[in-house]
């Protein structure tokens, strides 16, 4: 998938894997959710919401961006996240349903405005055509899930990179980047060992360490947007479940 500057919202800040409080723990503390928490939510869910709106509601790039932005602004203003009840659904499901309600309301309002006028035909938007083709093979819900996984890993990788910079482990990060983030054919361990002037066994160890640490960062990102341990475990399974 090519880099899309329209949807780039910047990478995550570098941080060590720390014990983030869960969403509910912070909400139940009585205070409004802090800026940090809200930033966690927005950074993780902005792209999935955007992709979901494009797939499900057939919006073009600009409209989908506007709707995503408006939804999140309203959600922040109306304390939407504080009202989340983990007994009813997972946070991801809660969010997606709220997006549906929001876009439907906007859609109905826009139809009322058009009443009496002409019916709008679909423009020959190439992106829209592509999205329709995409819809035939992937549902909006699947698109949302996949984008959520992608964003989750991207943010975790950024966290991991920052951690390596601070800890002076950039060799490990580069090996990870060159192997696990490689498009197409991956270099062999021997090639990486030669490139970095280290033994092949060190390449194995560095990769193992990198993957382990990345997993911790993924877990940390999820911990900040889940309601507790049970939901965290469920979200971890969703993040790694094969075929989803």
């Amino acid at each position: 998938m090519p880099f899309d500057p329209d949807t780039a919202i910047g990478g995550g800040e570098a941080r060590f894997p720390s014990t983030r409080l869960s969403l509910m723990e912070r909400a139940s503390a009585g205070d409004a959710l802090s800026h940090e928490v809200l930033q966690d939510i927005v950074s993780l869910y902005w792209k999935p919401i955007y992709k979901y709106i494009r797939c499900k509601w057939n919006k073009n790039n600009e409209d989908a961006k506007d709707l995503t932005q408006e939804f999140l602004v309203r959600a922040l203003v109306r304390e939407f996240f504080e009202r989340f009840d983990p007994q009813l659904a997972s946070f991801r499901t809660y969010l997606r349903m709220a997006v549906d309600r929001f876009v439907l309301k906007i859609h109905v309002a826009s139809l009322r405005q058009k009443r009496g006028g002409g019916v709008g035909f679909m423009s020959l938007d190439r992106e829209r055509v592509e999205l329709q083709a995409l819809e035939r093979v992937e549902s909006p819900e699947t698109a949302f899930e996949r984008e959520w996984q992608r964003q989750l890993f991207e943010l975790a990788i950024e966290d991991f990179r920052g951690c390596c910079e601070l800890a002076g482990k950039m060799t490990q990060f580069r090996i990870f980047e060159q192997y696990d983030l490689a498009e197409g054919e991956r270099p062999s361990y021997a090639e990486l060992a030669e490139l970095h002037c280290i033994p092949a066994t060190s390449v194995t160890n560095h990769l193992a360490w990198a993957r382990r640490t990345l997993r911790e960062f993924v877990s940390e990102r999820l911990r900040g947007v889940t309601s507790g341990e049970r939901e965290l475990r469920a979200e971890m399974r969703s993040a790694f479940r094969a075929g989803s």
Partner: peptide, 8 residues
């Protein structure tokens, strides 16, 4: 950072 492709 470059966006992750589906395969990656």
């Amino acid at each position: 950072m470059k966006a992750l492709s589906d395969s990656v």
